[in-house]
Amino acid sequence: MGFGKIIPILRSFDEARARDFYVDFLGFKIDWEHRFAPDLPLYMQVSMGECTLHLSEHHGDATPGSAVRIHTDELDALHGRLTAARYKHARPGIEQMPWGTREMAVADPFGNRLVFVGD
């Protein structure tokens, strides 16, 4: 039995704020966008390296306040880049966890939490 790649869906409510956070601050790129019509909710895919996320404005696609863990071997470099960005809504720090990992948590504008995990 095989399993494929997992792609979390995170709820978003505002296209401009989603772009500001995921693209301008975190450094994800937009892979594609979809709307059924120009005035309907946006569904888009963003990615950075092997990490892929779906962001949806559609009611019922996901629950605000979700959390995802994203493993990285470049936690310190990511932290340095995010600190240098001086994003006005978040200044995440790295914590040493009791279970042996180093983690940096940052909340998006919609209450979703991204936890970047290093060794």
Rank of each mutant, 00 (worst) to 15 (best):
G100F: 01
T72V: 12
R86Q: 11
F116C: 05
P38K: 06
L75F: 12
T52F: 14
M48Y: 13
E57A: 11
R102H: 07
I30K: 08
R102Q: 06
D73L: 03
A85K: 06
R91H: 13
P38G: 04
L26T: 09
K88E: 03
S66L: 01
A90F: 07
R113D: 06
V46E: 01
V117L: 02
V68F: 05
M97D: 00
F13T: 14
T63H: 08
D119E: 15
E95G: 03
K88L: 02
R102W: 05
D108C: 02
G93C: 13
D108E: 00
V106D: 03
L26N: 09
Y43C: 06
E74M: 08
R113A: 04
A90S: 14
R19Y: 12
D61Q: 04
Q96C: 10
I70N: 07
R11F: 11
F13A: 15
P38V: 05
L42W: 12
V68S: 07
M48C: 13
I9Q: 12
G93I: 15
A85V: 00
L114N: 02
G65H: 04
R17C: 00
F3L: 14
G111V: 03
F25E: 05
F116D: 03
H59W: 06
G93M: 13
L42I: 05
H34W: 15
K88W: 01
V46P: 02
F28Q: 11
R91Y: 06
G111I: 04
L75V: 12
P98N: 04
R11C: 07
D39G: 00
G2H: 14
A107L: 04
T63C: 03
W99L: 07
E57Q: 15
W99S: 09
D76V: 09
G118Q: 03
I70R: 12
T52G: 05
M104H: 02
R69D: 09
S12V: 15
D119Y: 07
G27A: 11
L82K: 02
L75D: 04
A16F: 03
G65V: 07
D73A: 11
R86E: 09
T101P: 07
P8S: 10
H54N: 12
A85H: 07
A18T: 10
T101I: 01
R11P: 08
S56Y: 08
F28G: 09
G2T: 15
D39N: 10
A62S: 14
Y43E: 11
P92Y: 05
A107Q: 11
P98G: 06
T101G: 01
L114Y: 02
E33T: 14
D73M: 04
G49C: 10
F13D: 15
L40A: 12
Q45C: 14
M44I: 10
